[in-house]
């Protein structure tokens, strides 16, 4: 891994993001708009607080998964990845470049989302809200990493978009947003425990319920980080330098 090549790749990916203003606006504004819509659906109150808090982790993961898988697919199908591999670039340089560049975008997105939720939609949490920023960032990192991995299984951008319900759908159903973890059948509980979004929602719930959620948050955030690194390692093996 070369710091120089990683930094150049990150810069290039950020330049691409900046060149596509519409995508940037969608990344930053759409989750906040969705939460606002939900606020009026529920008319605010505790029911909204609980769902909105979970969404602060779910939405960044979802959005980042989607844009990363399409961006990486373009790199694979456009010939640029093959070309990059004939240069001194190594896979971790590129993967880290994507991770950090989109991670920064996710951070901006989360900041806007949290600001809108707390000051605009008067979201209440028992614990300090800053933890939510860390959790949202880690959830987004998982989205980026699994998005990079998912791009290996898609041949076209249509397919990449279709992977979203496959990768993200079960996680949303099982993460505890619709039904509490404890009330699900054992098999589904086991499945939920194997999926990263569950840990994001657990960490967020801890912030919602506990005055000092540091322990629970950090434990779950570590699991999220492990998922992200695991997916990145798998993604690296899914892009061999040489065709067999």
């Amino acid at each position: 891994m070369s710091v120089h090549i990683f930094a150049a790749s990150m810069r290039r990916i950020l330049q691409q993001l900046r060149a596509d203003r519409r995508t940037m606006v969608l990344i930053v504004a759409v989750p906040a708009l969705l939460l606002t819509l939900l606020y009026f659906v529920y008319g605010g109150g505790p029911a909204f607080d609980q769902i909105a808090l979970s969404l602060l982790g779910i939405l960044p993961m979802l959005v980042m998964f989607l844009i990363t898988s399409v961006a990486m697919l373009r790199e694979r199908t456009g010939g640029t990845l093959e070309r990059l591999f004939t240069t001194p670039l190594h896979r971790p340089d590129l993967l880290a470049g994507y991770g950090v560049a989109f991670g920064l975008a996710a951070l901006v997105q989360s900041l806007v989302l949290i600001t809108v939720s707390v000051w605009g939609l008067s979201l209440k949490t028992t614990g300090p809200i800053v933890w939510v920023l860390l959790i949202a960032f880690c959830a987004a990192a998982v989205g980026v990493a699994t998005g990079l991995l998912a791009s290996a299984f898609a041949r076209t951008e249509f397919q990449a978009v279709q992977f979203m319900p496959l990768f993200i759908g079960p996680q949303v159903f099982l993460c505890g947003l619709f039904a509490p973890h404890a009330s699900m059948p054992r098999v589904l509980q086991g499945l939920a425990d194997a999926l990263p979004m569950t840990y994001a929602v657990r960490a967020l719930r801890a912030v919602g319920d506990q005055a000092d959620p540091a322990g629970d948050v950090l434990r779950n955030v570590l699991v999220l980080a492990a998922f992200a690194l695991g997916a990145l390692a798998l993604a690296a093996t899914s892009m061999p330098r040489r065709t067999r």
């Binding site: 090549i5 290039r12 596509d20 240069t87």
Partner: peptide, 21 residues
Amino acid sequence: GLSVYRDLTVQQNAEYFAALQ
């Protein structure tokens, strides 16, 4: 085919490949 980043400028593309080398 075109193995450059179409959404970047000529200069940005060349600078990226220069940085890689």
